[in-house]
Design a protein around this nucleic acid. Structure first.
Lengths: 109, 109
DNA sequence: AGCGCATATGCGCGCCTTGGTATATTAAAG
DNA sequence: CTTTAATATACCAAGGCGCGCATATGCGCT
């Protein structure tokens, strides 16, 4: 089970997610949109599925692939502690840190 | 110039970012923390630097590596259209979308 | 039952990346 | 100027990944 970031490292897979953001799609449709072979598409979809990015719904021999939020939400969560870097790069924080310099606040997790 | 996601696909590089989130660090320190060789560390740092994740400040023969927000903010931005998938998976939203206006009010440049 | 469509899987190749070791570079110190 | 510390680069071997091609599977249609 590859990690979310590894999965997203592939441009083709990100493009698939983009397509699925609009609506669920069939393999053939995705394949045509991306301009890659059907087996190639299936393999990318497999990776996405095994990592929980997409979910398949069977309809006869068709496979409807649809987006799944969990792994993306994971990445969103991973970003959380970093977000302050660009959300608030206020000097306020700097002086705040200075004030609590000698304070022992254990906050980790 | 590799893409952000490719850079983050490496666990070691994510660990480096975690370390740099606390404070700027020297190569040797990072190397010791990660338990990998110094050249290996330098190579990861190079990738991170070329992708804009980190910035180097020279101090004699020392190199202080510090975090840079841009690429992470890019990823954050990339996530934006997907965020509705888990922020509001309410049916409410569907009808609400038309009149929706709820956004935090902050200035960022 | 046989055919054709939609999709998945297996195999082999080539590339890119990683990790390690050895070495180059720059700066401080004696 | 030589030595030592800190870091970067070169080189090499190994592994993982994506790609294309061939093939297997499942299902509907006639």
């Amino acid at each position: 089970m590859p990690e979310p970031f590894t999965v997203l490292a592939e441009p083709a897979r990100r493009r698939i997610l983009d397509l699925l953001l609009e609506r669920p799609r069939l393999v053939g449709e995705i394949s045509r949109e991306l301009g890659i072979t059907q087996p190639g598409t299936s393999k990318h979809l497999r990776v996405l599925r095994e990592a929980g990015f997409v979910h398949v719904r069977a309809d006869a021999q068709r496979r409807w692939y649809e987006l799944r939020p969990a792994p993306l939400a994971d990445i969103d969560a991973w970003l959380t502690p970093y977000r302050r870097l660009w959300n608030d790069h206020l000097d306020l924080l700097e002086r705040h840190l200075d004030t609590m310099d000698s304070e022992g606040s254990e906050e980790s997790g």
